Computed example of a mutant assay.
Amino acid sequence: MSQVLTLWRRATGVPVVGASLGKRAFSFAFSQKAPYFRTVRPRFVEIAPHRAELVVPKRRGVHNHLGTVHAIALCNGLEAAMGALAEATIPADERWIPQGMEVRYTAKATSDIVCTAETDPADWDGDDPHVPVRVRGVRDDGATVVEGVIHLHVTPRR
């Protein structure tokens, strides 16, 4: 099991700490490991093989000129979710690196945004080193504000 998944399960499974505080502690630790993610202050909700979900809070620090969550902040949230999914999913003898991101902005991001990343088990099987990760961001009212694919390149560890 990956370090990210182990830490997630420990942080959210300690009865004394509680799942809510454990999620906040994990989110803080994740952002320390990849400092750029601190800019959106991700709050992880779920991490499991083939799925990760987090919330990007709508706050002044991520606003654009319209007062909505900036497009690049949305991408940052999607990439953080993808990274957690990749770490929780990838076999121990392999490594990954993002190769590109294709996104469409479909509505204004006028609330906190739930960023989700998903793959299918078959995406990680076989000889093809390319793994597509489906990503999307959803407003509080259920409207999708951004959706797309992050392309990973998966290779054996050396």
Rank of each mutant, 00 (worst) to 15 (best):
H63L: 08
N64K: 07
N64T: 12
H65Y: 03
G67M: 02
G67N: 01
T68N: 11
T68M: 00
V69N: 07
V69I: 14
V69F: 10
H70E: 07
H70W: 13
H70N: 05
H70T: 02
A73I: 01
A73G: 05
L74I: 06
C75N: 04
C75I: 13
N76H: 15
G77V: 02
G77I: 09
L78W: 07
A80H: 00
M82A: 14
M82N: 12
M82S: 14
M82C: 13
G83C: 07
A84S: 03
A84G: 11
A84W: 04
A84E: 03
L85N: 00
L85S: 10
E87R: 09
T89R: 00
I90M: 05
A92I: 03
A92F: 12
D93V: 10
R95C: 10
R95Q: 12
W96R: 00
W96A: 07
P98G: 06
P98T: 09
Q99P: 11
Q99V: 14
Q99A: 15
Q99S: 15
Q99D: 15
G100S: 03
M101V: 05
M101A: 07
M101H: 04
V103L: 08
V103D: 02
V103N: 04
V103F: 05
V103R: 01
R104A: 12
R104Y: 14
Y105W: 04
Y105E: 01
A107W: 05
A107M: 14
K108N: 12
K108A: 15
A109S: 10
A109M: 11
A109C: 00
A109F: 03
T110I: 07
T110K: 11
T110S: 14
T110Y: 12
S111C: 02
S111M: 06
D112Q: 04
V114C: 13
V114R: 13
C115N: 06
T116Q: 05
T116Y: 09
T116L: 08
A117N: 01
E118D: 03
D120K: 15
D120A: 13
D120F: 15
A122S: 15
D123W: 03
W124A: 02
D125S: 04
D125T: 14
D128E: 03
D128L: 04
D128W: 02
V131D: 09
R134Q: 09
